[in-house]
Simulated scan of single mutants.
Amino acid sequence: MTSRYIAIDWGSTNLRAWLCLNGTATQSRHSQQGITRLNGQTPQAVLAEMTHGWCDSDTPIVMAGMVGSNVGWKEAPYLPVPVSLNGIADRLTHVTGPVWIVPGLSVNRGDNHNVMRGEETQLLGAHQLAPSSLYVLPGTHSKWVQADGDRITDFRTLMTGELHDVLLRHTLVGAGLPPQIIAPQTFTVGLERGLNDPAVLPSLFEVRAAHVLGALPREQVSEFLSGVLIGAEVAAMAEAFPGQQAITLVAGDSLAARYRQALGTLGRKVTVVEGDTAFQAGIRSIAYAVAI
């Protein structure tokens, strides 16, 4: 068992690093040099800058996320489901020296083609902290993951967060809007719309029409749209994964509150695990499980 290691969450647009001693993150660093934003530097150089002063040549570095994609540092092949979360540590991809990449997971069948990178590490931690048969990881690309014990059997991805951003920034829905404000009551109205009618396409232009006609305050369009999209996501996935009453939600406070509200409306019991907490628990078990 190693008492000192470095955990890396290296996505497309951001890079986060933690120095961990005896299983606890003691220092952290953040950079916007995601794997698609290296600004001409090599991944090796960026990693060396991020970990400067933290390690010697023998300190294990375990990395998860898009760093292992086909546009990353070195491709870490996807593990097809069904797959045991506890077996992930046996399938790391070696990069150089004591540097390793965690593999992503995939589904490849006629009715579902899906991939994830980074979330598998959160899932491993969430399974240890709040085991469930259904995990929800909301965000830019929300993941709904079905499990049987420690085995991941299926998952779906919904582009809820990205769609919200695109609609507000790059379509007529958000054109000419003033700065947006937090408005819980407006979010709830949108949420009810999405839950009751998850066929969301007809509702999207109505968001635009509603604020043009004065039925929706222009500074609350983001909240209403968020409610519609999250409601539609939750309603659709509740149908895709029926009978799952207990759910582990892996998210930060803001998103956790919104999804807890949506799932609670459908009578689902929710346990929340903070995203970074899940990641740290997952990558700690990987670092401890492998002889590196």
Rank of each mutant, 00 (worst) to 15 (best):
M1I: 12
R4Q: 15
I6S: 03
I8Y: 01
S12I: 12
R16H: 06
L19M: 12
S28F: 10
S28D: 14
G34Q: 07
G34V: 07
R37S: 14
N39F: 12
N39H: 14
Q41K: 15
Q44S: 15
L47E: 01
M50D: 09
D58T: 11
M63Q: 01
G65S: 08
V71D: 15
V71M: 15
W73G: 07
P77C: 08
P77M: 10
P80S: 11
V81K: 05
S84V: 13
L85W: 11
I88F: 10
A89R: 10
R91K: 14
L92C: 11
L92I: 13
W100K: 00
W100N: 03
I101A: 05
V102N: 01
V107G: 00
V107H: 00
N108R: 07
R109H: 09
D111R: 00
M116N: 02
Q122H: 07
L129E: 04
S132Q: 10
S133R: 15
S133M: 13
L134R: 03
V136Y: 02
V136T: 08
T140W: 12
S142R: 00
K143Y: 05
K143E: 05
A147C: 14
G149Q: 07
I152H: 00
R156S: 09
M159G: 01
M159V: 03
V166P: 06
L167A: 07
H170D: 15
T171V: 13
L172D: 08
V173F: 08
V173E: 07
G174N: 10
G176E: 13
F187Q: 03
T188S: 10
G190V: 07
R193S: 12
G194Y: 00
P198G: 09
L201V: 13
P202Y: 10
P202L: 14
H211M: 13
H211Q: 15
G214Y: 09
L216M: 11
Q220C: 12
S222Y: 00
V228K: 01
L229N: 06
E233R: 04
M237N: 06
A238Q: 00
E239H: 05
A240V: 12
P242Q: 08
I247F: 01
D253T: 12
S254W: 12
A257V: 01
A262C: 03
L263I: 07
G264F: 03
G264C: 04
G267R: 03
R268N: 05
K269Y: 07
V270N: 01
E274A: 14
I283P: 02
Y288T: 15
